[in-house]
């Protein structure tokens, strides 16, 4: 069974249709890239998969392991194994990263009927992951993303991804605002999480990221639809010829 199946998805925001029948099938172990110009609806797709309020699904379906994802609250989706690395991670002053991650992990475990993880075990786990991503300990004591640089915020997203061990990871413009070193660290973090059971959907509008996270499938999105799919060479092709050729196709 495929892990994530988006079927003919139509989505409106404030009376305006943004996605006009988008389909996407992601199988375990696969890495998909979604490329497309600004405003083509990539973030909208990621938000709808994660369950952000404010979007009206007027048609189509999203199945996760065969279950109707659209019926689930955002926290249920997370507990089932859907993870979105945000394009713009928010800052949460007054809630320390430690506390937040511990509470979130335990909430997910509880929802799955698993035992809660104790503070010492949690600390050990989070310290290991943080170290592998070059995240200093004192960042974890600060408010979530408060005072973090762009690169630190993105690394914090990947830290969470590693901690929650989701089945599907959607990475929305993970490369935006990162210099080449930061990008490499983040991409290494993502690559370390690739596994035969896990799938990734990497959203980007630059080919650059895909040199580091090499996809199995590339989709081109334009004006709320997937207009072309192909292998990793499609990304290179786009790099050379740009998106213009697809604008008309959409």
């Amino acid at each position: 069974m495929s892990l994530l199946e988006v079927k003919d998805l139509q989505v409106r925001v404030e009376e305006r249709e943004i996605l006009h029948g988008l389909s996407l099938t992601v199988n375990p172990g696969e890495v998909h890239a979604i490329m497309g110009p600004n405003g083509s609806g990539k973030s909208t797709l990621s938000h709808v998969i994660a369950g952000k309020p404010g979007y009206e699904v007027t048609g189509g379906q999203i199945l996760f392991k065969g279950e109707d994802l659209l019926e689930m609250a955002p926290n249920e989706r997370a507990a089932k194994g859907v993870f979105l690395a945000f394009q713009y991670p928010v800052e949460i002053p007054g809630v320390t990263t430690w506390n937040f991650l511990h509470a979130a992990l335990n909430a997910q475990r509880k929802a799955r009927g698993e035992d809660e993880i104790s503070s010492p075990a949690f600390l050990k786990k989070v310290r290991e992951v943080a170290k592998s991503l070059n995240i200093p300990q004192d960042m974890l004591k600060r408010g979530v993303n408060v005072g973090f640089s762009g690169g630190e915020k993105k690394r914090n997203e990947i830290l969470q991804m590693a901690l929650f061990e989701p089945a599907v990871c959607i990475l929305d413009e993970m490369d935006s605002g990162l210099d080449i070193d930061a990008l490499r660290i983040a991409a290494d973090g993502v690559n370390a999480l690739r596994s035969p059971e896990r799938a990734m959907v990497v959203i980007t509008h630059y080919q650059r990221l895909l040199n580091y996270i090499v996809p199995d499938v590339v989709h081109v999105m334009s004006k709320g639809r997937v207009v072309k799919s192909g292998g990793k060479e499609l990304a290179l092709e786009l790099e050379e010829s740009g998106y213009a050729q697809f604008e008309d196709a959409a």
């Binding site: 926290n75 997370a78 506390n99 909430a107």
Partner: peptide, 19 residues
């Protein structure tokens, strides 16, 4: 953001209220 990380609504609210 907090719910997308698995926190039920009331728990997410509780953390924000504590803050």
């Amino acid at each position: 953001y907090m719910r997308a990380r698995g926190l039920p609504e009331k728990e997410a609210q509780a953390l924000l209220i504590q803050a």
